[in-house]
Design a protein around this nucleic acid. Structure first.
Lengths: 572, 572
DNA sequence: GGCAACACGTGAATC
DNA sequence: TGATTCACGTGTTGC
């Protein structure tokens, strides 16, 4: 039941872009005014709309909606306001029947909703043309909840999104229908969601705001969707380990980067956070929901997940797939109504597509449906005639799926990914690995030297030390007047007992003094005296350092300093 | 000029697999016997042959041959012997003309070579049938060099491959023709290569042996091909940072994992080693060689390399592309001769393919060839009729190329990749990142605790000081002698015209000198004089800097320095 | 409308 | 021989 599928996608974009007009609308809905929703267009590196859609549509759970709450903290107090949203609707056929009967509040409420929608529609369409009978469809609870959300905002950490944004800790509320009196219900938004039939609501902090998504189903915590959030809403800030679980019924368990587990199952599990599922509760009122209670996570085996039961990994949101799923609900209906309302006639002509979509989503327990699942390609030539390629196509689909899954995982562990595309991700991953590695190397050498110092300090009580030797540097060796191609940095080191004298002659460019001192710092050598002088373009440094218990040899020292001073790397 | 293209590839495999017979052959070639070449078939996770071919064929430079020297150190002494090889030949048309005239040694040598080849051929074909006139083609120098290589082996680090294998450091010898008396010529293999017209020879250590490849062209060092070596010859051992440059004419420069640079140009440069090109020399006798001297590396810009001049990144060896290139030389010739000899008639019927291959390899300077380059797809439906998709196809090709390049780079920095496929690579990369991260975290906490211990031990000797400690060891601190705000750092700044005098008085702990100088560096203030002295536990720094055009005010400067010196952040 | 990025179906090659 | 991986050309979407 997909609203604004591709057919009216542009219309929806206009709808979203014009949301700043809403504050001026004479909407009679009892909601607070929108503070500054003009931010929707300012976040433009791929439309938010599309990312939300990707997030929701690709998931194997059936999420109902997704919202990006955008922070606009230009003024002192931060405020989260509607950034963008995507409404998918719940499962499909039961929504129309169930919800109006349940808690819709009767005719008056419906009339109210319709009136508001009419006004909104007229705002979008520019003129109030022919939208009257467009909204005589019933407005479901979740639709209404979603639409009303557009008008809401949260100041200074207020309510659930605000809290998540301030604390930087994600929240996953599931099964709240059974604990309406619980702690989470203190949030107005959660309470509201509950009354409108949302059973699961998740808020995750992202760059510049909070992503909230929810479902009328009971969905237990799983990391994949959080990976996806991080991937799609690339938040460089916040750190990669800020997510935390908060559940209404279970204890909070945060799990940060346990490498053993991640390494054990080879990157298929979420590397940044583990969501402990709540085993109890949830009388999943939607019996068709494919993941009963302790959803079958794929922590199955270590090396490769090539031999998965087919259909297990089909959860990557992509254009075609979204279209495919959306095609089940795309119905011939008047244009402006299609924007806000799902068409009532769900008996569409594209029956196969809906069937396929319905049976490809629930991870089919049988190994392969094989003969069914007609591909029903959209705009491709089927090359029909063989039966072999159908299987091949499926296999290839799964291979791509797996690859994308891996990309998600990689994205989740690499911070500061510059762009969203795969090539950049790979490049950034490489850079990140190198950064990590060099950091590790630096730390390791630090640790070694510290260890040596520690040892030295400990052993200083017992007077059995071997110092005294005075050796001369090996680098310069008299001639060595800046060999061709070399960097023109001369380093002389004289170790004299506990103290060591260092003389460095270099150019004056690139801050050699800072380099020398940083190098000494990183080797944990304390400076007792130093002088820097510049004559013409030559810089001459002289330093005396203390090195209790000769941690480094003469050669090590001079080589290290030489490298650090003449190196291209700029210490920071 | 592709020997053993796909058409006779199986024949070539048989040829290679039967190489253990060679020791028993009555070959009259003056070469040492092969010790144990039966290893060719033991390295089976993708044929070596194919990987060598991929390595060579995909590169943008025109390599002539590639050899895998396999180590068989089952017995105590290690020995490198012929593992597998791939011969591509040089450019093409000039080979036949130039080489026989140059140094072939005349008719006697030719007769000798032909006789050896005949024997080899007869060994392969099983019976000496009709191979007589097959080898009346001239045997070029490089072909001969390659073939003779099959019979060679290197004991215990002897010669260039042995040395590379023992030291684990790659070697890139280029332009050696001008320095025949140089150090590299002490290697017999290099000398031999030179005499047979090889101008560039590269040896890289890989898992279980050494990959050697060479060219009759002068090819300067570039990291891409090394990435590819690492990717194709997945060496889990050896570490990813073992490569080192050795050039006959320039000084050796090794460059290990400089993270700043890698981060700066965003993973497009080779992350593991930088090959300094030799700017001089190289009267590139092949004028058509596309990369003149300081080959245009892509260290061009920082963020993304989307807008490359098209055709820049075409260097990934792949089946189709290899086939395409090979098709240029596949000529109708007798079977057994085609195995060892290129057919003489280079005027092939597949003219378009050769043209396309010839003009797609040299990175075309013009933005896009546009109308030319007929796709000439092999088994695909062309959907001809439009002219738009041709460009699209090219763009897509380049996108894939870039992605693969990134995969190579990633592969190069991730050790222990379990399998060769992309999905495993990604998974392993994720695991590796997490491993690194956890290691780093552990080390960091170790460092903190060690630092605390160190501090404690140091303070035990002279219990008179808790003053001025800018200790960042927030962990053990206890009373945290360094109260926030009063860090015990005094900064005086006097701006006097262009020069500015700075005086800093602080504790001696935590390297305040380094902090000061780094702060100055980051504000881009050049030091003309500085002195650091320590009296008791007090450090007094004095510095004179130049500040043309008063960029900072007195207050800004002193505040910034105060913050940086007393801050907890340790500059790196 | 060009262009970049992506997923898809498909042919081929490998094990 | 079936499974799996890969690159290619193509359609599509969003800027």
């Amino acid at each position: 039941m997909n609203l604004w599928s591709d057919d009216n996608g542009s219309m929806m974009e206009a709808f979203m872009a014009s949301s700043d007009l809403w504050g001026a609308s004479s909407s009679s809905a009892a909601v607070q005014p929108v503070p500054s929703s003009a931010a929707a267009a300012s976040f433009n590196q791929e439309t938010l709309q599309h990312r939300l859609q990707t997030l929701i549509e690709g998931a194997r759970e059936s999420w109902t909606y997704a919202i990006f709450w955008q922070s606009s903290d230009d003024d002192g107090s931060s405020v989260l306001a509607w950034g963008d949203g995507y409404y998918k609707g719940s499962g499909g056929e039961e929504e129309k029947r169930k919800l109006p009967a349940a808690s819709n509040g009767g005719a008056a409420e419906q009339e109210h909703r319709k009136r508001v929608l009419r006004e909104l529609n007229s705002l979008i369409a520019g003129a109030p043309v022919a939208v009257d009978d467009a909204v005589d469809e019933e407005v479901t609870d979740t639709e209404w909840f979603f639409l009303v959300s557009m008008t809401q905002s949260f100041f200074n950490g207020a309510d659930l999104p605000g809290h998540v944004f301030i604390t930087g800790a994600a929240a996953w509320l599931a099964g709240a229908s059974r604990v309406t009196g619980g702690a989470a219900a203190s949030y107005e938004r959660v309470r509201q969601a509950l009354t409108f039939g949302i059973q699961t609501i998740v808020c995750a902090p992202v760059a510049g705001g909070v992503v909230e998504f929810g479902s009328t189903d009971l969905i237990y915590q799983n990391p994949n969707i959080m990976d996806k959030v991080r991937f799609l809403f690339n938040h460089g800030g916040g750190g990669a380990a800020t997510t935390t679980t908060t559940t209404t019924t279970t204890t909070t368990t945060s799990w940060m980067h346990d490498p053993s587990t991640v390494t054990a199952d080879h990157g298929d599990s979420d590397p940044s956070a583990l969501w402990i599922s709540e085993p109890a509760g949830g009388d999943g009122k939607d019996a068709a929901f494919p993941f009963p209670a302790p959803l079958p996570k794929e922590l199955r085996f270590s090396d490769e997940l090539c031999n998965l039961p087919s259909g297990e990994l089909l959860n990557f949101g992509d254009e075609k797939k979204t279209q495919r799923a959306a095609a089940a609900a795309a119905a011939p209906v008047s244009f402006s109504s299609a924007v806000l309302l799902p068409s009532g006639d769900s008996d569409d002509e594209d029956l196969e597509a809906s069937i396929r979509e319905a049976e490809s989503r629930p991870a089919a327990p049988q190994p392969l449906p094989e003969a069914e699942r007609r591909p029903k390609k959209r705009g491709r030539k089927p090359a029909n005639g063989r039966e072999e390629p159908l299987n091949h196509v499926e296999a290839e689909r799964q291979r791509r799926e797996k690859l994308n899954q891996r990309f998600y995982s990689l994205r989740a562990v690499v911070p500061n990914v510059s762009k969203m595309d795969k090539a950049s991700l790979l490049g950034d991953a490489v850079a990140y690995i190198n950064e990590l590695r060099s950091k590790l190397q630096a730390l390791e050498s630090d640790a070694i030297s510290m260890n040596a110092q520690l040892e030295a300090l400990r052993n200083r009580d017992s007077p059995a030390r071997s110092s005294a030797s005075v050796s001369f540097s090996s680098t310069g060796g008299g001639a060595a007047a800046a060999a061709p191609g070399c960097s023109g940095v001369e380093v002389d080191v004289k170790i004299m007992g506990k103290e060591t004298m260092i003389r460095v002659q270099s150019g004056r460019a690139n801050h050699p003094a800072a380099r020398l001192l940083v190098a000494l710092m990183e080797m944990d050598l304390e400076v007792v005296y130093a002088s820097v002088s510049v004559v013409n373009d030559l810089m001459i440094q002289q330093a005396t350092i203390t090195m209790p218990m000769r941690v480094y040899s003469n050669e090590q020292l001079s080589a290290a300093l030489q490298a650090r001073i003449s190196g291209t790397r700029r210490p920071r």
